[in-house]
Simulated assay, not measured.
Amino acid sequence: MNQPLTLTVAQKAGPRLSLAGLGLALAALIALPLLSLLPADNPLQVSAYTLTLVGKILCYAIVALALDLVWGYAGMLSLGHGLFFALGGYAMGMYLMRQAAGDGLPPFMSFLSWSSYPWFWAGTDHFLWALCLVVLAPGLLALAFGFFAFRSKIKGVYFSIMTQALTFAGMLLFFRNETGFGGNNGFTGFTTLLGFPVAAQGTRAVLFGLTVVLLTASLWLGWRLAQSKFGRILTAIRDAENRVTFCGYDPRGFKLFVWVLSAVLCGLAGALYVPQVGIINPSEMAPTNSIEAAIWVALGGRGSLIGPVLGAGIVNGAKSWFTVAFPEYWLFFLGALFVVVTLYLPRGVIGLIKKERDA
């Protein structure tokens, strides 16, 4: 009689512990930008470097969560989410470059002897239009790609290869100087955002806070979708798409919606990444970056939402340390980490935590 009662108490305590852990993590993230505003001689003061590093990792965590929506729940492994992330970053970068250039042209355009902005730069001196581009650029590209891919019933490894080819093509296009995106160097040298200095500690604190808000909102949205009928249909599509079709549902609409939503989340993450890090270039579209995002999700535990966030934090935290202490061994460590997770942690870190908690 005691054993079932004990199990019941443990099952009730599990969600409470999870909510308590999320609450503590959120409180710590909210405290970071506030601590960064303290005087430099205060021992509790958080440096600008630390705030930027954590902010960058949080942006990557949003990308991991977005990828989990399409891979963990819908079963579509995308190896091109870096493209959507970079498009959102470039859209924000165009506005920041216009702010830095004032009435003139950005340095890379002057170097190429251009006399005016290209047509697609029109309106980018307005912040609201830049925000629209942040959503529209990745969203419309994902809509067009997804419409034709899902209509042609492309899935599995073929879908992954096509997404990787898409981001590789985007990288090659943005590397060219004549496309008007700064070529190999991309965009950098930002000065102001809405009239506020980008490098000011207060501006960095606000950008960090917005990143925390976006991550929290993305987690809430993902949780609501997963708990809804829509989420159950997505997981059914992942496990047995043909049976879903036989039940009278059209998988294409469900897959297209979550695919576009995932791309938009990546674009918003890229828009917050650029002013915090201070640069955006075509290397963000490199296929290796998208593959690394898949490792974040696999390590954290796909299909869990919070797992990919943990995976992004673990991998990028280790990367920040390895690239300083042992830069030549980072790729070996990343490869070994992926092999270990595949063999011994099929459900990722979040699965291990749940197993230890239930033991």
Rank of each mutant, 00 (worst) to 15 (best):
S18C: 02
G55Q: 03
A66V: 02
G278A: 09
S47F: 12
Y158V: 10
I314D: 05
F338Q: 13
L141K: 04
N185G: 13
T179G: 02
G301H: 04
G23T: 12
N177G: 05
M1G: 15
V54H: 00
V260A: 11
L58E: 00
H81D: 01
P287L: 10
F150E: 07
F338W: 10
V212F: 07
Q227Y: 00
F326N: 14
S218A: 15
G146P: 10
L128Y: 08
L96K: 06
A293I: 15
V339Y: 03
L337S: 07
L112N: 12
V277G: 05
G202I: 00
E241A: 15
S160F: 02
L58T: 00
L268Q: 04
K229R: 14
G156D: 09
M97D: 11
E292Y: 05
G156L: 07
G23V: 11
G88L: 05
H81N: 12
S304W: 01
W330E: 03
V135P: 02
Y73M: 12
L24M: 12
K153N: 13
A269P: 00
T179V: 14
K12A: 11
Y158D: 09
P33R: 12
L53Q: 11
G311Y: 02
A217F: 09
I353C: 11
G300Q: 02
S160V: 00
W71P: 01
A91G: 03
F208E: 06
I62H: 03
L96Q: 02
K229F: 08
P106G: 03
I280N: 07
K319Q: 15
W296M: 13
G267Q: 07
L79I: 09
A205F: 05
T179F: 10
F246H: 13
G156I: 01
G335N: 04
I154V: 15
A271R: 00
G14V: 04
R238D: 06
Y60I: 00
D41T: 13
G182K: 04
L131P: 01
V157Y: 14
Q276Y: 03
G89K: 06
A236K: 11
E241H: 10
L141D: 00
E178M: 05
R238E: 07
T211Q: 09
W220E: 03
Y90H: 08
Y344I: 14
A28W: 11
T124M: 15
C266D: 03
I30C: 14
R232F: 12
L352Q: 13
M109A: 13
S160M: 04
P308I: 08
V206C: 09
N184K: 09
C266A: 15
V339H: 02
L133H: 01
G104C: 07
N2A: 15
M76S: 10
I57K: 00
F159K: 07
L105N: 07
R243V: 13
A86T: 07
G183M: 01
I279W: 10
P327D: 07
L19Y: 12
N281M: 07
L77C: 08
Y117N: 09
S47R: 14
S283E: 14
L310E: 03
R16F: 14
P308Y: 10
S290W: 07
A286V: 00
M109R: 04
E178L: 06
L310C: 12
F190G: 08
W223E: 12
Y117I: 03
A27M: 10
W220P: 00
I161R: 11
L131N: 02
Q201K: 15
A269K: 03
V264D: 01
L32W: 03
N316A: 11
G82M: 05
P118D: 09
L334E: 04
I237G: 05
C247S: 15
L44T: 12
